[in-house]
Each structure stands twice: as structure tokens, then as C-alpha cells.
Design a protein around this nucleic acid. Structure first.
Length: 850
RNA sequence: AGGCGGAUAGCUCAGCGGUAGAGCGGCGCGUUUACACCGCGUUGGUCGCAGGUUCGAAUCCUGUUCCGCCUACCA
């Protein structure tokens, strides 16, 4: 059966085969298979906040090659895909795309239409919309983005089972997320606390430690004079945040610092605001920093929080949820001068307040010298533009070992249960878990997310009673406490004294995406399915989100299931631009992938991706894509040659030494490629297969060509045809995970079904066909052929020119091997006579005269 | 400041104890019935630096310099 086209082409293969695979269900998960026969992948759901970039193509291809390998090995591959479309990134996308902002105080407008669709003018001021309207827009815009995501992933040839598609904002995800939260709550792993938290004043939400990053930021030391209340002079302190002076609650120095030891227990008056504060001792005060004595403000940084807690200080926080200083002068500023000065900064943002305070200090003479500019690391929300503030608020947390060493040790051990690819990535995990400073803050003061499924009772005055929140039964999930009622209450009691109120917050995106194994596996909704896929075999992801997604998933699995969520963690590197910088949207150096797929073809782009070794950052390189395209074309043409020779006779076998030698090497290749894939090393498998393939086409095909055409009779020709077919079948199999389109195309010329459902190549079967083949035969023939080619090239003659004679000098042993392949060498080189001599290795070539 | 990676041909990278490799690029040759979206040949390197172990080191050990990343560092 031969359906070899006259002029094979790569054009159009993506659309043709993607459609066929979908309609034939080639990648459908077989849920009847027991756990031992399943390979389950916890695919990262990409964040829906615009478009996918070439980095996604890179890492998703890696996982896809592994999925395809295990599928060919006969496992039922559970390979879901989801869209992470809840959370702040999505909200931002929607704001930027439609030109609106959410104002939850507004009423729902049923006729509202978005003012823009991706074409928001630069000078546009965002239109305020109600929360329900905003959420509707979020659904609309994400649906649009998700269609584009799907088109790209399908074209790239990712072998997802699209029937398993989920979204993190979908009802199923909300149910899983809320159920997991409620179980955390019931077991005491989730709790509420009113405490200082990291707070982004632009997004107006609390953020978690994992979402925080340091940025080198310009600042300045200001030296301030605090006045001793016993009148014996001033204490000088250095601060980068003089605007926090009205929140000062104490000064602190190291307990062993001789300079300040005598002052502990005495008090000073703050500059400008004239508040009396104590001088205290604490080990975290660094005698080498600034003047060695610091002012404690509520709250300038995390150390302030520690001091506040450990020294039992009052809270004098002034920066509110809007990021501005309180409008009213606080009671602790008692003097008239102090209150007048505070009026000057009331309502200002931190930066403006600092400017004003510095002015006031200059006027009062309480600043010593000019500010000394410095550059120092400051904490930002990773998506934020202004430094984080610390604001005392009530928030929800999930225990993650940050405040409990026993739990911390258990979670480190869970990380140790995983097999990490590459192994050194585990250090990142250990490093992060070891350095956690607090529990995981999961509540966000946002709108498009999974609601925290609790209600609070209101007392007879309408005040919220936070103790003993009311929770829904699991059969009611998912709920939205802003529209659903707690059991035993009616809607008209919402917000009324003696009634109830819903928790207004949503959970952070990670609090839901940390449950992707449970979401994809339909935990509790389909226990049969869940039992067949959990714990999963592998979590593939990029290494920059080990501290967030990977760790959070381990935390949830540990709490809920008492085990690690997967067996393996496979970490992809980043794509670097030609200047070796990470490609990211914020740097503006991203390359959009669709045009690459159209220009080079999906297989070529996958080839480039698969040449990036696991965990290794890789340069964006269109040159590699060109090579991948060349390789794909070569596969088409070589296949056309092998299959165009016609079918071998029934009962024929591989008899020729050259053919057997090639098969011996091919079997070795299968062993190597298999071992590489078993260790998730798709890159090594590709490299070895490709190296073999080029030698196969350059040397073996040329050596065998004349004989295969029938130059030495049917038996010798059939040996070649059989060898070629076995090699072709094997090479198509080895290439199939990397180059799914071209391999499927060639497969369809002569085989039934999909190559992607065929069995992974079997080295034993190839060795059986090779019989007593001597592997060196192929190399030896290639070496002699190479010498012949060189002689022709150096003589500036064409390769078609005939060779008068060749003398091969080598050991008797090798000459015996050469003897078996000599006829093929002479055919390929157009050699009239070849003589062998024992001696020091050498090849002499004499061409026929011009 | 700790930790982890990397440093090999002009470029991208493989090799990780036994005579320095591939592809791309450069140069030259060639239309041979799979392939001009081609083929063939060829040119490229004190394997970051300095010590050490070894018969033998790109490969192991120690130190060191650059580059990247992760943690920590906000008075």
C-alpha cells in the first residue's frame, strides 16, 4: 500500500492533521485504564491576560513531547488543558482592553456596553462600572482571548485532550476551590487574622509574600533630631521614610550597643509632631546601620512589624486602603504645632507627604544636613508600580509552614518526594520554603475571582461578628456570598442588624490554580476519575513559579490528601532574547508565535523548542527553526525514496551486511532515545535521532541506492527495501513526539492509523531483523565513501565521475568487515576496482582521467 | 551576603576521566533517477583563569574571575 505523493510538501499539514486528530479522538484519555497504566500531566493553565508568547510555545512543546512518548509507550495519557482566567492579571487585561474600571458601589446596568474593544485611546479616562457589569466584561474578554489561545495550541500540535478543558473561573473550578478552602477552614489550616499585611495601594489589595519582589529604587537618608524629654539633648536617627514620622511609636537600638544602653527606658519627643515615644532595645537593631538607632513606625517595613509585635507597641497606622494619609489628625498627636503640621500632609500619598515633611523639617531645623541620596532594594508587588505599604487589615490565610517549623519541615520533605528535572531545581524550593516569613495570605480585595465562601453574622447594631463565620454545605458549592444567603437566613436580612453579610473578598488566583490536579481530575465530583489520575505523574512548569504555583500546589495536596501531588516536577527554562535577557511582556521584547508557525511550520518551531534542554534558558533562534524545517523536508524526501522503491517480496529478509549494520546502529539509537525520554530528556532523544538520521540519509541511502533499484537482483534489493522500511518506521516513531505533523503525514502514506497511537520503536525487534550484523560495516563504508568524495571534490570533479581504483589499507579484521559492504561502496562511489591491503590505515583514490 | 546554574570553533550548543564534536556561518566544488526548501568537501578552539589528583583532565578536587538566576538585605 503506497500513497506517496509526487511532490511531498509541508504546506497545510497543520490544519489537515489537527482536524483529523480531533475528529478521530487520537488524544482522548481512556478513563477505563487503571492508575498503573495512566500517565497524568498537571498542565499549567496559561494566564489569560492578553496573548501567548514564544516562551509558552517553548515550554508547552517540551511537555507535549513527553506526553507523546508515553502515549506511544502504551499508557493512557491524561493531558488536560485549562485557562487561568481569574485574578488580577485578567482584570487588568479587561480594564486595558475595554477602558473601564470596577467600582463596586455602582448598581448593575443591564444595558451596559463596553466603550472599547482593544482600541482604547491613550487619553481615555476609565469608565466606572458596577461589579456585575465588570465581571460580565471579564467573561467576554477572556472568552475572546481563550479562542486565540486554543487556535495557537492546536496549530502547534499540542496533544491535549480538549474534552478535559477547564477554566479557573468556571463553576467546576469554583466548586473545587471553595470546597478545598472550606476543608482547610474546618481543619484549622485556613484562618482569619487582623494584622499588618503587604498592601498594594494602586490595586488596593493585600498581596502575598510570594508575589512580592525587590526592586532597586532611589531613596535618601534623612537625619532627624529626636529630643530627649529630660532636656539633655537630641538623638539623631537616619530614615529613608521621614513621612512616616507621625506614625512613630518608639526608637530602637541593639541591647549591647554601648552608645544607647544608658538611654533604654527613657523617652524622646518626635520632631514636628511632638509625640513622646520610648527608646527600646531589640536584637534586630543593627548598630552598623545609619546612626545605629532607628525609629519604629507602624508600619514602614517588615522589621517594624516584628518590633511592633515583639515589643508590644501601639499601632499608629495612618496610611489607609487608598494609599493616602488619614484625613483626620490622629489623637496621639496632641500639641497644636503637631496638629497643624499634620494638616499639611493629611490626605497626601506617601511621596507627596515625604516632600512636605522634609519641608517642614527644614523649617523647624530638625533635619540635620541635606538628604543623602541612596539606591536601595524596596519591596513591590510583582505587578505593581509603587512600593508596597503595610496596612493592618483582616485577611484570610492558609498555613504553609511560614509560622510553624514542624509544618515547614513536612513541606520541605514533600518537595523531596518529587523527582526534579533537572535535579538542582529542588534547591529553589528548599530555599523558598526555608525562608518563608508568614502564612499564605489568600484573600484579595478584588472582583473577578473565586469568592471566599463564608458569611458573618451582624450584631444588633449591624456590626460584623467575625468569630464563627457561617459556611455553606458542600452540596451548595459554588456559592457567591454576595448574592447567595447562608442557610437559615433570608436575602432581606443581608446587611441588617441581626442579619448577615457575605465576605466581600475573593481568593487569590494561586489559591485556585494550586488545585489544578483536583480541578482537572474532578476531585469529589468524579471520584473514579480522580482515583485514576491522582497523584499525577508530572507537573511541568517554568522555574520562576516554583515558589508560587509549585509550592502552593504542594501545600494544598499536603493538607487535603497527605501526599505530594505528583511524582515528578519538570522545569522549563526561559526564552532569552538575542541580548540574553528574559523575554517578557513588560520588557517589550516578546515575539508572538503565530507568525513563526506560519512561516516555518509547527514542526520547525517545535524542533527549536525541543532543542532547549530541560531547565535551561534558551536563546530565541530562528536559525534553529530553519534547521527544523530542513529536517522535516528531508524526512519527506527520504521517505519518498524509501517507499517509492516499491514493496519487497513476501517472505523477504534483511540479508545484506550493510543493511544489517545499519539496523544494529538503529537499535542502539532506540535504546538511547528511550532512556532519554524516560528521564524527560526530549532534547537528548532528538539530538541522537537527528544525528543518526543525517548519517542515514547522507551515507546509508547513497550506499544502498543502486542495489535498492535492483542493480544486484531481487534478493539484495529486497534486503535494502526491508531495511529501509524498518528504519523509516523506527525513525518516524522516534521523531513523532517532536515533529508530529511530518511524521504523521509520512505514516499516512503507507500505514493505517496514527503514528501517535503506534507503538514506540522496539530495539529487540530491530536487533532480530539485523541478525548477526556487524555494526562497523556502516561506518567503514561511510569512511571509504567519504574519501572517494573528497578525492573528487579536491580534483574539482563532479561526484558522478568514475573512480579508476581505490586501495583501502587497514587491519585484517576491519578489512573482513569491509568485504561485506564493498560492493555497495563501489556502487555509491562509481568505483571500477577496489583493493584491500593490511597495513597502517589509509585510503588511496585514483580517479579516471579527464 | 548565602545558594544554584553557566563559561568549549565567529554564533547556538553537545560532550563530563582516555587522540577536541555537531549544526549554523565562512570558503570551495557539484545539478548524481528522494531532496536546489539541494548535495559534497573544507575552514574554525592553549575547552574562563590558577593550582592540585591521575599514566592521562574540557571532564574529578581546590581556589579565582566574569554572566545569569534564587534567597536575604528597606532604619
Amino acid at each position: 500500500m503506497n500513497r506517496v505523493p509526487e511532490k511531498p510538501s509541508l504546506d497545510g499539514l497543520e490544519d489537515k492533521w489537527a482536524a483529523t486528530w480531533e475528529s478521530a479522538g487520537v488524544y482522548r484519555f481512556d478513563r477505563t485504564r487503571p492508575r498503573a497504566e495512566v500517565f497524568a500531566i498537571d498542565t499549567p493553565p496559561p494566564t489569560v491576560s492578553g496573548s501567548l508568547h514564544v516562551g509558552h510555545v517553548f515550554s508547552y512543546t517540551h511537555t507535549d513531547t513527553v506526553a507523546r512518548f508515553w502515549r506511544m509507550r502504551g499508557l493512557a495519557v491524561f493531558y488536560p488543558i485549562g485557562w487561568d482566567d481569574n485574578g488580577l492579571a485578567t482584570e487588568r487585561r479587561v480594564q486595558n482592553f475595554t477602558g473601564v474600571r470596577c467600582d463596586p458601589r455602582l448598581p448593575h446596568d443591564p444595558d451596559f456596553k463596553a466603550p472599547f474593544a482593544g482600541d482604547v485611546p491613550k487619553d481615555h479616562r476609565a469608565v466606572a462600572v458596577s461589579r456585575p457589569n465588570f465581571v460580565e466584561l471579564c467573561f467576554d474578554v477572556t472568552a475572546l482571548d481563550e479562542r486565540a489561545f486554543e487556535a495557537l495550541f492546536r496549530k502547534l500540535g499540542l496533544s491535549f485532550d480538549w474534552s478535559l478543558l477547564y477554566t479557573t473561573i468556571g463553576a467546576e473550578s469554583r466548586r473545587v476551590s471553595q470546597r478545598a478552602f472550606l476543608r482547610n477552614l474546618a481543619r484549622g489550616e485556613a484562618y482569619q487574622q487582623d494584622a499588618p499585611t503587604l498592601y498594594d495601594i494602586d490595586e488596593r489589595t493585600a498581596v502575598a509574600q510570594a508575589e512580592m519582589e525587590d526592586r532597586e529604587t532611589p531613596g535618601a537618608y534623612h537625619k532627624l533630631a529626636f529630643h530627649r524629654t529630660d532636656g539633655s539633648g537630641d538623638i539623631e536617627i537616619d530614615t529613608t521614610r521621614p513621612e512616616l514620622l507621625p506614625s512613630c511609636v518608639a526608637l530602637v537600638a541593639h541591647p549591647e550597643d554601648e552608645r544607647y544602653k544608658p538611654l533604654f527606658g527613657t523617652t524622646v519627643r518626635t520632631p514636628l509632631f511632638e509625640v513622646e515615644v520610648p527608646i527600646l532595645a531589640h536584637r534586630l537593631a543593627d548598630p552598623a546601620k545609619g546612626t545605629g538607632i532607628a525609629m519604629i513606625c507602624t508600619f514602614g517595613d517588615i522589621t517594624d512589624v516584628t518590633w511592633w509585635r515583639e515589643l508590644d507597641l501601639p499601632s499608629r497606622a495612618l496610611i489607609g486602603f487608598d494609599g493616602r494619609f488619614a484625613a483626620e489628625c490622629p489623637a496621639w498627636i496632641a500639641t497644636e504645632a503637631g496638629r497643624t503640621r499634620y494638616a499639611g500632609i493629611a490626605g497626601l500619598a506617601p511621596k507627596q507627604a515625604q516632600k512636605k515633611v522634609v519641608e517642614l523639617l527644614a523649617e523647624s531645623g530638625e533635619m540635620i544636613g541635606a538628604p543623602r541620596p541612596i539606591s536601595h532594594p524596596v519591596k513591590y508587588y510583582e505587578r505593581g508600580s509603587r512600593p508596597l505599604e503595610i496596612v493592618a487589615t483582616r485577611q484570610w490565610y492558609i498555613r504553609n509552614g511560614g509560622r510553624n517549623d514542624e509544618l515547614r519541615a513536612k513541606l520541605v520533605a514533600r518537595g523531596g518526594e518529587l523527582t526534579w528535572h533537572p535535579p538542582y531545581m529542588q534547591h529553589r524550593y528548599d530555599n523558598w520554603v526555608g525562608g518563608l516569613a508568614g502564612d499564605w495570605l489568600i484573600s484579595r480585595q478584588r472582583w473577578f475571582g473565586v469568592p471566599i465562601p463564608v458569611w458573618y453574622r451582624l450584631d444588633e447594631h449591624g456590626a460584623t461578628i467575625y468569630d464563627g463565620p457561617m459556611v455553606p454545605t458542600e452540596d451548595r458549592l459554588p456559592v457567591d456570598p454576595s448574592t447567595d444567603c447562608p442557610t437559615g437566613y433570608a436575602e432581606d436580612q443581608r446587611g441588617k442588624p441581626g442579619g448577615f453579610i457575605g465576605d466581600p473578598d475573593v481568593m487569590d488566583t494561586w489559591a485556585t490554580s494550586s488545585l489544578t490536579p483536583q480541578i482537572a481530575g474532578q476531585w469529589e465530583d468524579d471520584p473514579d476519575l480522580f482515583g485514576r489520575v491522582f497523584p499525577m505523574d508530572v507537573r511541568p512548569q517554568a522555574h520562576d513559579i516554583i515558589r508560587t504555583w509549585l509550592f502552593a500546589t504542594v501545600v494544598r495536596s499536603h493538607h487535603e490528601h497527605g501526599c505530594a501531588p505528583w511524582k515528578n516536577a519538570a522545569l522549563s527554562g526561559w526564552i532569552l532574547d538575542p541580548d540574553r535577557k528574559k523575554m517578557s511582556k513588560s520588557k517589550g521584547n516578546v515575539v508572538t508565535p503565530m507568525h513563526l508557525l506560519e512561516q516555518y511550520g509547527a514542526d520547525a518551531v517545535r524542533y527549536w523548542s525541543a532543542s532547549g534542554r530541560p531547565g535551561t534558558d534558551t536563546a530565541f533562534d530562528e536559525g534553529q527553526m530553519k534547521i527544523g524545517r530542513k529536517l522535516s523536508i528531508k524526512i519527506l524526501n527520504a521517505s519518498r525514496f524509501a517507499l517509492g522503491l516499491g514493496d519487497p517480496a513476501a517472505g523477504a529478509s534483511v540479508t545484506e551486511p550493510l543493511d544489517r549494520a545499519m539496523l544494529v546502529r538503529l537499535a542502539d539509537l532506540v535504546d538511547e532515545a528511550t532512556a532519554a525520554f524516560e528521564g524527560f530528556d526530549y532534547a537528548r532523544s532528538l539530538e541522537r535521532t537527528e544525528a543518526f538520521f543525517w548519517r542515514f540519509t547522507d551515507d546509508y541511502l547513497e550506499l544502498v541506492k543502486h542495489r535498492a533499484y535492483g542493480g544486484h537482483g531481487e534478493v539484495a534489493a529486497d534486503s535494502a527495501k526491508l531495511g529501509l522500511r524498518l528504519a523509516l518506521e523506527t525513525l518516524l516513531g522516534l521523531f513523532a513526539p517532536i515533529l508530529p505533523y511530518v511524521t504523521e503525514e509520512v505514516w499516512s502514506w503507507w500505514r493505517e492509523g496514527s503514528v501517535h497511537r503506534s507503538a514506540w520503536p522496539d530495539a529487540a525487534k530491530i536487533r532480530a531483523a539485523a541478525g548477526a550484523g556487524q555494526a562497523e560495516g556502516l561506518e567503514l563504508a561511510a569512511v571509504v565513501l567519504g574519501e572517494i568524495r573528497r578525492a573528487k571534490t579536491e580534483a574539482k570533479r563532479g561526484l558522478a565521475v568514475e573512480v579508476e581504483s581505490v586501495v583501502v589499507v587497514d587491519t585484517a579484521e576491519r578489512l573482513a568487515v569491509l568485504d561485506g559492504v564493498q560492493r555497495d561502496v563501489c556502487d555509491a562511489g562509481k568505483v571500477r576496482s577496489l583493493r584491500a591491503e593490511v597495513g597502517e590505515a589509509r585510503v588511496d583514490v585514483v580517479l579516471v582521467a579527464d
